Computed example of a mutant assay.
Amino acid sequence: MEAAATTGVASVVLTSDTAPTKVHGKDVSVFYGEKQALFDVNLEIEANRVTSLIGPSGCGKSTFLRCLNRMNDTISICRVTGDILLDETNIYDREIDVVELRARVGMVFQKPNPFPKSIYENVAYGPKIHGMSHGKSDLDEIVHSSLRRAGLWNEVKDRLNEPGTGLSGGQQQRLCIARAIATKPEVLLMDEPCSALDPIATAVIEELIDELRENFTIVIVTHSMQQAARVSQKTAFFHLGKLIEEGKTEDIFTNPKNKQTQDYITGRIG
């Protein structure tokens, strides 16, 4: 059963039920050379929920997000310690195929970044390289289904062969979401997916996020506390590389246990 609670920040969705853990970060620390960016983060991410990571710029929330699909591997001086379990598998185990991992844990970036290809080829790219389709009809179904799930099908169905870069900013971001979900990931990471969008496009993406959580576990980094309150069921507050507090979104925004959390939410720090 869900009900709305009103706070000084925004309307928060209350959820009384619990969900199994999908991703579990245990004592996760990140180092860039000699500099430590994350300190012993322990966080459980629940299945088919939206978890928001909030905090000031440079607090470590995007760094933690990038740990969840090993994007930090692309930075030569970066070192990650601790364990991150996807279901019961440690994604930092040496036997893990990182390409396969990133098919299971998709990512949508801050700025829309469609490939310089057609709308169709943008969505078809992942399923092709992962061998997920058996012929053109299979691929068509994946592309069409992903565009529908991303709320974009009706706007582009008659121009699938046109460049994805020709779409508006909000449409490009939904195309990137369609591209991310085309490989049928279990987890979808979103790094400030609305920061480059206008309020109308942002509202469309937020509504989409709420629909997508029926099929995906979603982790979103956002600078907007209003957005975190609107879209997430769980919120984690980071500050200076440390996880300060995490819990149900309504509790974090209406009754935080930690003074630093309260100071951030009320605007005393930021």
Results as ranks from 00 to 15, higher is better:
residue 38 L to P: 11
residue 39 F to N: 15
residue 40 D to G: 13
residue 40 D to Y: 10
residue 41 V to G: 06
residue 41 V to A: 09
residue 41 V to M: 09
residue 42 N to K: 15
residue 42 N to W: 14
residue 42 N to V: 02
residue 43 L to K: 01
residue 43 L to E: 09
residue 43 L to S: 05
residue 43 L to M: 08
residue 44 E to Q: 14
residue 44 E to G: 06
residue 45 I to R: 10
residue 45 I to K: 07
residue 45 I to C: 04
residue 46 E to D: 05
residue 46 E to L: 14
residue 46 E to P: 01
residue 47 A to F: 05
residue 47 A to G: 13
residue 47 A to P: 02
residue 48 N to L: 06
residue 49 R to I: 06
residue 49 R to G: 05
residue 49 R to F: 13
residue 50 V to S: 00
residue 51 T to I: 04
residue 51 T to Y: 11
residue 51 T to C: 13
residue 51 T to W: 08
residue 51 T to M: 11
residue 51 T to V: 08
residue 52 S to N: 08
residue 53 L to Y: 00
residue 53 L to G: 00
residue 55 G to K: 06
residue 55 G to T: 07
residue 55 G to N: 09
residue 55 G to W: 01
residue 56 P to K: 01
residue 57 S to D: 09
residue 57 S to M: 11
residue 58 G to C: 07
residue 58 G to Y: 04
residue 58 G to E: 08
residue 59 C to R: 01
residue 60 G to Q: 14
residue 61 K to N: 08
residue 61 K to F: 01
residue 62 S to C: 10
residue 62 S to I: 10
residue 62 S to W: 07
residue 63 T to N: 01
residue 63 T to G: 00
residue 64 F to W: 13
residue 64 F to L: 15
residue 64 F to V: 09
residue 65 L to N: 05
residue 65 L to F: 09
residue 65 L to Q: 03
residue 66 R to I: 11
residue 66 R to M: 14
residue 67 C to K: 03
residue 67 C to D: 09
residue 68 L to E: 04
residue 68 L to W: 07
residue 69 N to L: 09
residue 69 N to V: 05
residue 69 N to F: 05
residue 70 R to C: 04
residue 70 R to I: 03
residue 71 M to Y: 02
residue 71 M to T: 03
residue 71 M to H: 12
residue 72 N to H: 11
residue 72 N to Y: 08
residue 72 N to C: 03
residue 74 T to H: 11
residue 74 T to I: 09
residue 74 T to D: 12
residue 74 T to G: 01
residue 74 T to Y: 08
residue 75 I to K: 02
residue 76 S to A: 15
residue 76 S to Q: 14
residue 76 S to K: 14
residue 77 I to T: 15
residue 77 I to R: 12
residue 77 I to F: 03
residue 78 C to W: 03
residue 79 R to H: 12
residue 79 R to Y: 09
residue 80 V to T: 15
residue 80 V to C: 04
residue 80 V to P: 12
residue 80 V to D: 04
residue 81 T to D: 10
residue 82 G to F: 11
residue 82 G to H: 08
residue 82 G to V: 12
residue 83 D to P: 00
residue 83 D to C: 10
residue 83 D to T: 12
residue 83 D to I: 01
residue 84 I to H: 05
residue 84 I to M: 07
residue 84 I to G: 10
residue 85 L to V: 08
residue 86 L to K: 06
residue 86 L to C: 07
residue 87 D to V: 09
residue 87 D to N: 13
residue 87 D to P: 06
residue 87 D to A: 11
residue 88 E to G: 11
residue 88 E to M: 10
residue 88 E to T: 15
residue 88 E to D: 15
residue 88 E to F: 01
residue 89 T to G: 00
residue 89 T to C: 01
residue 91 I to S: 15
residue 92 Y to M: 07
residue 92 Y to P: 08
residue 93 D to G: 15
residue 93 D to W: 10
residue 93 D to Y: 10
residue 94 R to E: 15
residue 96 I to A: 12
residue 96 I to T: 12
residue 96 I to Y: 12
residue 96 I to P: 03
